[in-house]
Write a protein that binds this DNA or RNA. Structure first.
Ligand SMILES: [Mn+2]
Ligand SMILES: [Mn+2]
Ligand SMILES: [Mn+2]
Ligand SMILES: [Mn+2]
Lengths: 231, 231
DNA sequence: TTTGTAATTTAGGCTCTGTTAATATTGGAG
DNA sequence: CTCCAATATTAACAGAGCCTAAATTACAAA
């Protein structure tokens, strides 16, 4: 009867660990204990304990004192959570009038409570969107995800035309401020100047509006370079 | 600064206990340990333990060996959960194409994860509905709830015209079967006959369709009596 | 009044997920 | 090569919420 493929039904903690580890892995190859602790706002020894349990469940591989990597099963669950999170953010924004700065916390809780069916109904109602309100790609139902090759505004040379494609969604105050500068996903603008020593970047937005963006914020703004300004 | 009215943020268990106790209280004055255990599908000693914690938190009063009653704070939270549950069921049905037999389980989980804001946005999108898909009244934001005075179909005399107003939503198979008989909230029909010894009731639906309803189901169908049939 | 049964609570134990304090390992600076 | 500081793990503990088995209480029948 039971062929081994049960419904897992992981805990909220497990799901958040897997998602956090997935996101850390996509930056640098493996996830360190302290980085996981930082992201989840948990003490490092708690992470060590949880990592042991998760690797015993076959969701990740742990090399002591080195770091952690998701197994195939771990990555599958992580991507499922990422899909849920991003569909939820998109639904709340498109259908219930939320702003992009207030959806993250709501999705962070709902992602653990929704059924697969509800997520697919939401995705359907939205026309199967490919990006969330912050421009992050939404994994497909079978766990495929686009990995666009974007450059933080902080690293874009002066004199380029760029399109803002994705913004880190973790901090709602930063999101509000970014929006107040006239920056949204899809906006095209030019880099005019940059001060040295991690100084601010001056940009020209549509309508020739000039804005200055600090380096910390510019790290969070992921762009594609679309062309070169003439002299 | 802190005036004593913190955001509580109760656990899923706590919220489900309060809701269950509220619903048991509205049948008979107080809730018994074994009844709570039955509703929540938990062993009675677990209920004793939880009851102790909940009464220490001031959410209910416990008279040992007698039963339990919600305090004002407990009732407030219980009604908030009932509102969440019923708004969610209504939203899923109206906006996402769910049937009335599949919303309960989804709402049972989501009710613990949504924010007040999300619930109010859903309520708004629905036009502040007063009843859920099973006909149960939705408490207002400040915890007021209509208590309509309904009669189970099992107790309606023969020869009456009645309107089906509310159906117990706990079991989805029963809901599907009830719908298959042509019974929905709002349907008006006549009681034609009843067999003794808890036997089935014969009813005449709109279009003169005749159906027979067993006693067990007739207990779950809450009606208002609207008038008397001639002869 | 006694007594049996059902309901309830207490006792003791388990898992999960977190904590802090102490210990161990790693990797780089000197 | 040695030693220090950062990073990670282990040890010991805690609380929520569940369990089963044993003890207690309530209540109604005899
Ligand atoms: Mn997010
Ligand atoms: Mn989460
Ligand atoms: Mn329900
Ligand atoms: Mn629930």
């Amino acid at each position: 009867m039971n062929t081994g493929t049960k419904k897992p039904g992981y805990s909220r903690s497990t799901e958040d660990y897997l998602k956090a580890i997935y996101e850390l892995e996509s930056l640098g190859g493996s996830a360190q204990t302290s980085a996981i602790a930082e992201v989840l706002d948990i003490a490092p020894p708690s992470v060590s304990g949880m990592v042991k349990r998760l690797s015993e469940s076959g969701l990740l591989e742990h090399v002591p004192y080195r770091g952690v990597q998701l197994t195939r099963a771990g990555r599958r669950t992580a991507l499922k959570m990422v899909r849920r999170h991003r569909i939820l953010e998109t639904y709340l924004t498109s259908k219930l009038g939320y702003d992009w700065d207030s959806v993250h916390d709501e999705a962070e809780r709902l992602e653990h409570a929704v059924s697969d069916e509800l997520i697919e109904r939401m995705a359907m109602a939205l026309g199967n969107p490919r990006y969330d309100p912050h421009g992050a790609p939404i994994p497909t139902k079978d766990g495929e995800i686009e990995e666009p090759d974007l450059v933080p505004l902080a690293d874009v040379p002066v004199g380029k035309t760029v399109e803002l494609r994705m913004v880190s969604d973790k901090d709602s105050e930063r999101l509000r401020f970014i929006a107040s500068l006239g920056l949204r996903v899809g906006v095209v603008f030019e880099t005019m100047a940059r001060q040295p020593f991690r100084g601010p970047i001056t940009i020209r937005l549509p309508g020739s509006k000039i804005q200055v963006v600090g380096n910390e914020l510019a790290q969070l703004l992921y762009c594609v370079i679309r062309g070169q300004e003439v002299g």
